[in-house]
Amino acid sequence: MKNINYRFILIITTSFFYSMASFANNSSGDWKPQIVEKMYLLPPKHLNKVLNNDFNKSMLALNLQTTDNKIKDRIEKISELNSMLKGASKNETLEIKHQIIINKRDYIKDMSNLLTMKRQKLDTKKSFFQKIQKNIRNSSLNRKTNSEFLNNKNNALKRAESIDFKILDSAAHSMSKTSKYFKQYQINKDAVKKLKLAIQKHPMSNKNILSKDPKNKMETVKNYVHNIDTEISVLEMKEEMINYMAKIVALDAMSLAEEVAFDSQNQNEIVSTNFNDPVNVISVFTN
C-alpha cells in the first residue's frame, strides 16, 4: 500500500513537471514585456514607445519580421509567375498555374502565421495594460483604506525632515560616534533632494498626466485597451479574409486538377479512337 502511494505521488510529481516543461516549450518566440514598475508612471506616449522598443527586442518581433519578408517574396513570385502566363505554351501554362497555386498556398500559411503572431503581440499588450489597470485599482483601494495611516506617515516624514538640521547639530555635539547609516543617510538625502528638484523643473514633468491624476491614468490605459480591442477585431476580419482566400486557392487547385484530367482524357480519347474505331484507320488501309 505504501509503495502504491509513493508511486502515485511520483507519477503526479513527474506529470506536473512534464506539464510545466510543455508549457515552457509553447512559450518559445513569446514576448514578455521586461518593463519595470517605475515605468508605469511615464507619460502615455512614452510608455507606448518603451513598450514598442521592448517588443522590438523580443523573439516574436524577429519571427514577425522574418514571416513578413517571406510574404513579400511570395507575392513577388506570384506576380512574376502571373506575368509569365501570357507567352507560355499549354504545358508550361499548366506548370505555371501549378506553381502559382503552391505559392498561394504558402502565402496563406505564412499570412495565417503572421496574423497569429500579431494577435499574440496584441494579446500581450492588452494583458500588460490590464495589469496596469489592476494595479491602479488596487493602489486606489489601498489608498482609501490606508489613507489615515498614510497621512500619519507623511506627517511623520515631514516632521522628521523639518528637524534634520537639529539632528545634525546634535550629532556634532554628541559624545558618541555617528553610524555609517547616519553618514550615508545624510548624503543620500541631499542627493534625493537635488533629484526631486530636477524632476520638478523638468519640462516633461508637467506633461506627465499619468502620475498626477489616477483618474486620467485609468482613462488613458482604458483608451489603450480599447485601441487594442479594435486592432484585434480588425485582425479577426483579416483572418476571415484568409479563410476565403484559402477557399479560392482550393477551388483553383480543383479547377487545375480537372483541366489536367480533361486534357489527359482528351489525349487518351484520341489514342483510343485511333485504335478502336475502324473509321479512323481507313486512311491507313487506303494509302
Binding site: 506617515k153 511623520a156 516624514l157 522628521a160 539632528i167 550629532a171 554628541s174 558618541s176 560616534k177 555617528t178 553610524s179 547609516y181 547616519f182 543617510y185
Partner: peptide, 11 residues
Amino acid sequence: MRLLDLERMTI
C-alpha cells in the same frame, strides 16, 4: 544614536 537610525529607517 542607534535609536535615531532605526527611527529614520522606519519613517
